[in-house]
Structure formats: structure tokens, C-alpha cells
Design a protein around this nucleic acid. Structure first.
Lengths: 177, 177
DNA sequence: TATTGTTATACTCTATAACTATA
DNA sequence: TATAGTTATAGAGTATAACAATA
């Protein structure tokens, strides 16, 4: 597959999603002349289409709830990887999240400047640096992780706990190597 | 949710996905000093993470197989909407795919210049124009749709037909209003 | 007064090349 | 010779404002 990052972007929310509606037409017209209800049924049979729309739905809620923490999805992912893998290097984060090294530099620098992480000399490779959470970083990450977990349950509230597990398992089998 | 487009991007494939690996370390070190295997288990419990990775996996294959048609995911979506909704307007496509009008202009112009679509006067609104596939556009869309359908089966080959149906249904319930 | 299609433009995200210090 | 982190920069995607024509 194309090695595109898993991390996502921070975008300002716009309005609620619009529903397709045609220009006002007082009289009924043939289906191939003016469309009164858009047929998206074929696209909805596509896994890629559904997966992307679902991902965007989750990310939308994520952006709202994580805004107080000042974390985009990618920042949360990086912070969480460091939390669960103290001493991880930038290169390892890049490999795990499919981020290109030049694009991670600014994120790490930003987290560092915010005092959320510390860069320590790597114990066995003087080129590298081990990344660690600071005390405030640990606190923030813990709160953010709780928020993320709660968010999951809310955004998938139409699904039972068992269905949600099934969904995540099936998704994992699609992309796992 | 944030109203981000469902349409996706065309990116050149890079190499195969790398696996996280630490700098060479001859001796075993404590877990919090140098990480030898990156723990991504928490991220993998997140629906958004799994959905996005799965979407990217599908899109990666999509990009490869659709390259001969010169279609990115968004182009295929637009072409398919026109095929299934002849006479659809640009605004309706924007609403259905969460694309902003200024960003659709270039795509429609490109499809027009390639002779794949025709812009006809809208029967009841002289501001709008009805979009239709040309004969060559119909041929291309038909082939592309077959490719997309086949692609789905291949990319989800680890899933049974029933599991794939379940997956798409669950995804739909996550994002459907 | 609102909407369709459009231009111009800014901002964000993603990708490539190349450099330095070290392995 | 290869790799970690970095800089600079190019390219693609996404966003807002504003306009003419029409509703």
C-alpha cells in the first residue's frame, strides 16, 4: 500500500453535514433530467468509502473533544506511543505511525516546547534521542487517553459493545500484515 | 463532525511499510531505557485508528488499480455519482461527498476536458448545470466500477463474504446520521 | 436576500532531497 | 556505507472570502 501517514489533520469544524438537495423545481421531472434525491448506494457498497467516512466521523468528534488538550490526532498518537514506550526514538514513531521523519520534527519540537516531553540522550546510540513524557506530559496524556476511550464509546453508541469489538477486529484484519 | 471531504488524495506509493526497529543495542536494556519492540496495543483498541488504517489500506490498492484509468478516489466518486445520477449538479456532488465547491471546480473541469463528462444547461435553473457522462465516460466508469468491486474482494480477502458485509454494515452505522 | 458556479488565495498535510553527526 | 535527526522546499489537499448571474 501507499505509505501514507495514519496520523490525521486538525481542521476547523464547519457546519453540520449538508444533505444533497436539488435546485428548487416546482414540478416533477424525469430522473435523468434533474435529480431530486442523490443515489449514493453504490458508493456505500464500497469498503473503502465506508471505512473513510467512519474514520472521518470518529476524527470529527476527536477534534472537538481533544481541542481542550491542544492535541490533534497525530499529536495524541505520538504522545501515547511515548507514554507506552518510554525511550522510543523519533524513527520508531515514524515507522509505527507511517509518518515521514521530516514531518515529525516539528511535532516533537512543539511537544518539547510545551514541556510535555523530554529528549534524553539515547543510551546506546549518540545519533538518537530517547523520548520521555514529562510529569505534565504524563498527566495530559492520561487525561487525553481517558477522553479518547470515552469518545469511542460515544461515537459508536449505535453499536453494542460486542458489535464494536467485532468492528475493530474486522478492521484490523483488513490492514494488518 | 467536522465536515471534511470523503474524497481522498492521490499519493505516489513509497516503499513497503517499515516495521519499527530500535537502534542496534548489543545488550538487553530496561524497558524504559531503549525500546526493542514498539507497543501500539492501545492505539489498536481505538476505532478511529483502525478505521483510518483500514481505509488507507484500501485506498493504497485503489490507487494502484485505478492508475490505468487516471482516476483518484475522488474522481471515481464524482464519476460514479454522475453515472448513477445523470443531471446531478456540482452542488449536489459537493453535498454528497463533503467536497467544498471551490475544490470541485477543477475536478469537473478536468473530467470535462478529458471528454468524460458533459455539462448541459439545467432544465429548471439557469444558474446550475446538469452533469452527464459522455459515451467514453460511461465506458470508463463502467470499467472502473468493475475494478473497484473486484478490488474490494481482494483487499478484504482475509474476510469471508459474510464478514465483509458485516464490516460494511457496522461502519455504515457509525457514520450514518 | 439566497444560491450556483467560479476565482483567488491561504493554510495544512505530505513528500523528496540533502546535510551533520554518528554507527 | 548506512542511519538518526534535521533543514529546506515542493506538491497535494482543504479552507475562507468574494464575485457575477440567476432564483
Amino acid at each position: 500500500m501507499s505509505e501514507t501517514t495514519v496520523a490525521n489533520t486538525l481542521r476547523r469544524p464547519r457546519g453540520p453535514r449538508k444533505v444533497a438537495s436539488p435546485p428548487k423545481s416546482p414540478k416533477t421531472v424525469p430522473d435523468d433530467e434533474a435529480v431530486n434525491a442523490i443515489d449514493t448506494s453504490y458508493l456505500e457498497t464500497l469498503l473503502g468509502y465506508n471505512a473513510r467516512r467512519a474514520a472521518l466521523a470518529v476524527i470529527g468528534v476527536f477534534l472537538e473533544r481533544m481541542a481542550p488538550f491542544g492535541l490533534r490526532p497525530v499529536d495524541f498518537s505520538v504522545l501515547t506511543l511515548i507514554a507506552h514506550n518510554p525511550g522510543i526514538t523519533s524513527r520508531q514513531i515514524c515507522a509505527a505511525l507511517d509518518i515521514l521523519p521530516p514531518n515529525l520534527v516539528g511535532m516533537v519540537r512543539s511537544l518539547d516546547q510545551r514541556g510535555l516531553i523530554e529528549r534524553r540522550p539515547h543510551p546506546s546510540d549518540r545519533r538518537a534521542q530517547g523520548l520521555h513524557l514529562s510529569p505534565s506530559g504524563k498527566k495530559l496524556q492520561k487525561n487525553a487517553q481517558s477522553t479518547a476511550t470515552q469518545l469511542e464509546a460515544d461515537v459508536a453508541s449505535r453499536l453494542s459493545a460486542k458489535e464494536l469489538d467485532t468492528l475493530k477486529s474486522l478492521l484490523h484484519r483488513v490492514y494488518a500484515r
